[in-house]
Design a protein around this nucleic acid. Sequence first.
RNA 1: GCCGGGGUGUGGUAGAGGUAUCCCUUGGGACUGUGGAUCCCAAGACCUGGGUUCGAAUCCCAGCCCCGGCCCCA
Length: 438
Amino acid sequence: MRIERVKGTRDFLPAEMRKRRAIEARMRAIAERWGYEEIKTPTFELAELFTLKSGEAILEEMYEFRDKSGRHLALRPELTAPVTRLYVNELKMAPRPTKVYYFGNCFRYEEPQRARYREFWQFGAEIIGSDRPEAEGEIIALAYHILKALGIRAELHVGHVGLLREILRAAAPNMTGEHLSRAMRLVDKGAKEELRELMRTSGVERGRIEDFIHLIESRGDSAMAEVRRMIAGDGGAEERKRKHLEQLEQLLEILDYYNVGYILNPGIARGLDYYTGMVFELYEAGDEHKLGAQRQICGGGTYRLAALFGSREDTPSTGFAFGFDRIAELFQNGEGLKEPKVVVVPVRERSRGDYTVIEAAIGITTRLREHCTTYLDVMERSISEQLAYANAIQASFAVLVGRRELESGRVTVRDLETGEQEQMSVEECIEKLRRLSE
RNA sequence: GCCGGGGUGUGGUAGAGGUAUCCCUUGGGACUGUGGAUCCCAAGACCUGGGUUCGAAUCCCAGCCCCGGCCCCA
């Protein structure tokens, strides 16, 4: 009976791993340069951590289970909650702002489709302890720079849930908190008809409903005009709205300073009440749609979760998470990452059982391995079989070592792409191949 | 949870009721240092389970998995 891979999971072959490692390394390098430090949390947590954050309904979409002593656990479906928990448990004494990044696998029980798997990876960063526009701007700029360094073109949409919530509240003064959250969820989903219906039944007048729909559909400069229009003249609420607007304007200015191109999108929302400020999303740019229906490659925002997990103070945070697998699909530069391979080919005389050729070959191989990936025959193969193997693993060079070479004190270096070969001393050979891998 | 299209050696394929084609791969052998070959031999597959049929890779049903989409997306 053959054992199959579990639905929605993947095996990664060497070529894919090489690519993923390279992407990960670049992400890490940039995050470190920006002053973020890596943390890691467990693969499973108490299920409560996630239901507290997202509601009971997500149990449906999690891998949740009881362990042998009856603890209710879940494989983590995302990393923001664990990171916040870690902060509350371990890092509250750390100097503010606390800047961390993470990379790990997450699990969701959903139907797999293009760019969506049941085990997937997230790379993210958080600034804990600030929700100032400077922090929000830095987080967006960091995400933007990482994508840029990877050569991935993306479209950045920036919104502000705090502001949107205030505008909605002012437009619908009768709405209960419960209904307000539901309305924000509908904005997030883009379910406009349902939103109209909800606002209507909450007693919001028709003109205000359409104004609000118009606002969340607007983009860019006209969106800013819409926002300004809806701020004006609402008595007590106006003050709160102004504060949010001011924050948003400062954030956008900072993005300009970072030279980050964005589209203002007031319709980005979150259905969860602890999102308080900026929200942003990055989408695959262009019309190619490599990711199919899953265009989003990054999401982030400003939130206050710490109190929910038992912190005395309601620490503000801002952060983002990349869908690592989607980025890997968009990342083009896979071929350029391949390290050149060299194969050392000992040429044995069949009639002679002597090992002097092997000794020389091992010597050269050991020295070459200080500079590049080097293979040496371990199957006592003939020269043609060894060259066939070199070809099969796509090696760049073969270094032939046999009696003749030993006698002349030189080796034969064969370029496997052109078929040209030349004789040179061991020193020259090492020098040539060393330059190759730099 | 729902809808559509699929599943043939490791991978890629042909095959539309009569016991599976080709490429590649793998193992063994021949070939005394250029054959990234060549030659010979061998190995390896119809997703699983039922049904129809004298006979099923092929037709029917169910399941599993893959691809795409819906829903959802913390």
